[in-house]
């Protein structure tokens, strides 16, 4: 029971790593930047937490979902994992959404182009039938040979 929250965070973090690896979102996109950004983000939010705790604004809840271990006064061991998840999720989302939007957009574009192509083909058929379009070359030659009695 006491490891439930930590376990949930670790599972979610694993999901972030899997998505990152599959779609090259953060570490797999540019690990040199990621290895700086994640620790800096983590330090930034931990400082925020610690100041908030020192000011008595928020504090660790008494719950059976947490291990009860603390890395600092009122700062549960789970919190750095939560903050890492927040950072990783943010970067994965910001890198992943353009891929998702482009994929949806591209598919819609393909459909549109497909419709146009089909419409053009249909229009070409109609023109040929109504005589506007000379149609295939050999047919034109044939008709001109018959049509001009000179």
């Amino acid at each position: 029971m006491g490891v439930l929250y930590l376990l949930g965070l670790l599972i979610a973090l694993t999901g972030m790593v899997v998505l990152d690896r599959r779609f090259q979102l953060f570490f797999w996109r540019d690990w040199r930047r990621a290895v700086v950004i994640l620790p800096v983000g983590l330090a930034f939010f931990l400082a925020w937490d610690l100041l908030g705790i020192r000011q008595g604004i928020f504090f660790r809840g008494e719950t059976s979902f947490m291990t009860g271990l603390q890395v600092a006064r009122e700062l549960p061991v789970e919190e750095p994992f939560f903050l890492a998840l927040l950072c990783y999720l943010t970067m994965n989302l910001l890198a992943g959404l353009p891929l998702l939007v482009a994929a949806v957009d591209g598919r819609r574009g393909d459909e549109r182009r497909g419709d146009e192509r089909r419409r053009d083909e249909r229009r070409g058929d109609e023109r040929r039938r109504s005589g506007e379009d000379p149609g295939p070359r050999d047919a034109r030659l044939g008709s001109s040979a018959k049509g001009t009695p000179r």
């Binding site: 540019d30 950004i37 983000g41 930034f44 939010f45 970067m91 910001l94």
Partner: peptide
């Protein structure tokens, strides 16, 4: 505020750090 700060700070660091490419 935590999420808003993450959305501003982290991608900004990504832009400011030298890129691999």
């Amino acid at each position: 505020s935590y999420s808003v700060a993450a959305l501003i700070l982290l991608p900004s660091l990504w832009v400011l750090l030298p890129s691999r490419s």
